[in-house]
Amino acid sequence: MRALLFLDTENESTGISSLAKAVSFALAFSFLCLLAMAAFASLEYDWNWSAVYRYKTKFIDGWLVTIQVSSVSLVVACLIGGLSALAARSPFLPLRYLSKIYIEGTRGTPLLVQILLIFYVFADAAHLDNRYVVGVLVLSLFSGAYVSEIFRAGIESVGSSQLLSAKAIGFTPYQTFRYIVFPQALRRSLPALAGQFANLIKDSSLLSIIAIGEFTLNAQEVNTSTLSTFESFFPLAVGYLILTLPIFYLSRHLEKRLAFDL
């Protein structure tokens, strides 16, 4: 019994058995479920899943839009982040400050404000009518600032001895970046990048306020039609978890692999 619930501190090298893991996880999970059930029971809530079930395609459609918007945003965010990380190291100083202002400005303000500002002011001024394009753009700009910092940390993590060695070999600055710095920086950035992707997926829910038909907006609409609030939002949470949990797992896996490689 004890072996199933406690870590063997005297014999740490043996690790945790899978049975102990399963039992402990089940315990923790059931405890949280009980807590939730007790809370709902005190609410005396009338569950009505059938009303919500009729809208299942709406959930699936929204879920797919969320995946699409997040994926495209991730790619664009990587481009923006990469350019911004390079700009931050540019010998042309105004470019450095441009990157700095962008990063600090973006990280220091709420996404909600950015969405509203860009959608109602900049997109309007630029006659960008497609709200999906604007949505992807806002999300990419927002995430790009974080990606830029991830890349910057990755680039800076490549040691000076590597640069010295590349210099001694006779690599040009471009070759040094292309063959030595970039591959190492990218590999070291991957775990954090995966984590950022999970954040991006969750952040995309805010796009609902400019009426982009993604997962959250669709769930809100189901709620409005059925008046079954919890039945509408519960699948929402599960839908996000289905996306984010594997990504967190991937991120941790990448981190471990990195620890072995370097």
Binding site: S165, Y179, Q184
Partner: peptide, 27 residues
């Protein structure tokens, strides 16, 4: 010139062969 450093300074993301061959090819 060839330089050999105290802590080898090989490129960790390349195998031994590539560490030697890449400078030949690119430089």
């Amino acid at each position: 010139i060839g330089v050999v450093f105290q802590s080898y300074n090989l490129f960790p993301h390349f195998d031994a062969l590539t560490n030697i061959a890449l400078p030949l090819e690119k430089v």
